[in-house]
Design a protein around this nucleic acid. Structure first.
Lengths: 251, 251
DNA sequence: CAGTGGTCTAGACCACATA
DNA sequence: ATGTGGTCTAGACCACTGA
């Protein structure tokens, strides 16, 4: 049985109680103190043991439900859900994507500069045609092998200069306080053009995965428009999907 | 200014207040009463006007944050987020996917029957090799044109018989009370084999999008393993991605 | 039936934004 | 300084599950 004492909770910490509690439970699950299929102590028990109000306990549990670590059954209990490997469907740039796959990211620059947006870019990024954009085109490599061609466009006002981008565009954006929080991706299958084949070291007409991404800041403003072509033989895209309706029975 | 009166809330309804309130706000946004970028009335104002506690008001707002309809700024206010077209990243079967795209779904059966799982299927679906599975293989059509080849495997215990599946596998599963709530998809680009080319009416070596999906019930049990091959020239896969970290500043 | 999660309240205090 | 969202509490009642 999981025993959670008040001692695990740091009253003075600036971290909210519900997050500390969520983290404590997450840790117990990771360590195997409570295993897949086991029931968590009831909300009231947790509340008593940790001396935290039940509302706050529920909030912690809801965090873990969102993460897919727990599942609740009305009238029955809260259970540790079977592991669904990694978290997918998360917004990440090429660099952290490769990191998750255990590959070393790299890049070879094709183009880096500023200019006026094309009408399509202006539309996608919600820009006037007089606002500048920065362009970044690279061959992205994994462990030194070419894996993708990536062409990114970012409104100029979000970055000091094109040179602010080292290996990771996302890192550069975040450094300036512009962190994308959501994105919309369109994925297609296609055949490599002559030029793509050359850059990716594949034969012409090899299969490529084309990914188009628009990402947005928390307030909804578009911050990035990227088109990529990945080698079909070396890359797959993993995504997690959730239930469509909004029964919202979970909270 | 948005005016929300208590009259919009039906005290007697079995629908929870927070959902009624969320629906009311959703409607106001859809009707254009409050437009993109506008601030919502403060939580306290909404609470007073609707005579609903602030906690409950927050809960309604959180629902809409999850849907991407609103964004919150600490110390400032809650705003209507710019529209990000449709909801993507949702779990849906072929039939409803086509419905969303305004196409008429159809199918031509290739195989329908029961059998023992392959080792791979047993592993993926968490089955013993003595448990039966049902198999459904179809050419899926959109407005009568072949669009994809879909091969689904479902543990036999979730369906009365293979014939329970008409056009929609998901509809059949749901009819038996087994609704998948999350799925994991793997997407790859490839070239059509001879047989695929024939079934899809494309030339051999045309680009195809291969999608592998495992989906799960609320309690985490695997319920479906499906492999599909979509025509690359007629289909794109759209998905929404969210921020990776868990700042969870939204709730 | 007892025990569990689901919903709701009124009120408090803190942290941040804006002027 | 005021107003906004962010966190937290104690307690209540309902709805569902399972012995």
């Amino acid at each position: 049985m999981l025993r959670l004492e008040r001692t695990e909770i740091n009253e003075a910490s600036p971290t909210p109680l519900y997050r500390q509690l969520a983290e404590a439970i997450r840790t117990r699950i990771r360590l195997g103190d409570i295993k897949t299929g086991d029931a968590l102590p009831s909300e009231r028990e947790l509340s008593d043991a940790a001396r935290i109000s039940r509302v706050t306990v529920r909030r912690a549990i809801e965090t873990l439900l969102d993460e897919g670590l727990l599942s609740r059954k009305h009238g029955s209990g809260t259970y540790v859900a079977p592991r669904i490997e990694q978290q997918a469907g998360l917004l990440s740039g090429f660099s952290s994507d490769m990191g998750n796959r255990g590959l070393r990211p790299g890049s070879v620059w094709i183009e880096r500069g500023a200019g006026n947006p094309t009408p399509e870019e202006a539309m996608t990024l919600g820009l006037g045609i007089d606002e500048f954009v920065l362009r970044f085109a690279r061959v992205r490599t994994a462990d030194g092998e070419p894996l993708a061609i990536e062409r990114a466009v970012v409104p100029a006002r979000f970055l000091e200069s094109p040179d602010a981008v080292g290996t990771s565009l996302y890192a550069a954006l975040e450094a300036q306080g512009h962190r994308p929080v959501r994105g919309l991706q369109r994925i297609q299958a296609g055949l490599a053009t002559q030029e793509e084949a050359r850059l990716l070291s594949v034969v012409p007409h090899a299969a490529v995965l084309r990914i188009e991404r628009r990402s947005f800041l928390a307030d909804g403003s578009p911050i990035e428009f990227t088109r990529s072509a990945y080698r079909g033989d070396r890359y797959d895209f993993v995504t997690e999907v959730r239930e469509p309706r909004t029964p919202d029975t979970s909270r």
